[in-house]
Design a binder for these strands. Structure first.
Lengths: 120, 120
DNA sequence: CCTGTCATTAACTTGACAGTTAACTAACCG
DNA sequence: CGGTTAGTTAACTGTCAAGTTAATGACAGG
């Protein structure tokens, strides 16, 4: 039973797994842009870009509004932050693991009291 | 022509897009583990887990060694950091955009000199 | 050496996604 | 109204990934 946050991470990470979409996110980090503006750097049909934008929108990473015949795209930085949070959290857990190992080694070096849990 | 780093990001983000694989990474952040240990929490066949591990390994997020008939898995935190770097970089670009906007607004408020670049 | 344990490979099914072209919708502009 | 610009939807193709079961490899230990 995946939580809602989990499902959102699925979509956000999957969206970021494509280089075209990462480039689009990179562009939008500098400010909103229309579909044509976003498409310009790529040797890809407009429908192709449109699909990428739909993927990004479903993932919550971008939103779109209507302005005349344009559809300006906007980076939703909160969604990006959720992916950031997941990674930093687990990165931190990893670091804490080393802290514990260091503490253990220090204890062993000074106290010299048994080697339980040394290696699996 | 995607750079090597780009390709690696493709694989790393794609690997993290799956909840099972994220859970495996989460487990490995707490320390190395064998395939069976990693598989235990999941209602999935062992070959299924094996495939996920292969995806994680190809992405560079984990490595495996051999110890008797076990294949202990190890989190490669550098690969995780690369994804972290990509996101933080673009997150920072986004923040700087606001800085510029603020500067612009301040300038407008004090100096009152023309509205170039107001909206696209 | 043969049996059990740990794990992978093989073969297959199913479903999703990237990309295309062609056709369509929506809105401005003259 | 008709044309133009901006973008999406439809239909189709090819590729790749997730999951399964069944068979196979690698190693420890009596």
């Amino acid at each position: 039973m995946p939580t809602l946050a989990e499902e959102h991470l699925d979509a956000a990470f999957a969206a970021l797994a494509d280089p075209t979409r990462r480039a689009i996110v990179g562009r939008l980090a500098r400010g909103d842009a229309t579909v044509s503006e976003l498409a310009a750097p790529f040797a890809m049909s407009l429908p192709g870009i449109s699909k990428h934008l739909k993927v990004l929108e479903r993932s919550g990473l971008i939103s779109r509004r209507r302005a005349a015949q344009f559809r300006p795209c906007h980076l939703e930085v909160d969604a990006l932050d959720q992916t950031l949070d997941w990674i930093t959290t687990h990165r931190r857990i990893w670091d804490e693991r080393f802290d514990k190992l260091d503490a253990h080694l220090s204890a062993v070096q000074s106290g010299r009291r048994g080697g339980k849990d040394a290696a699996r």
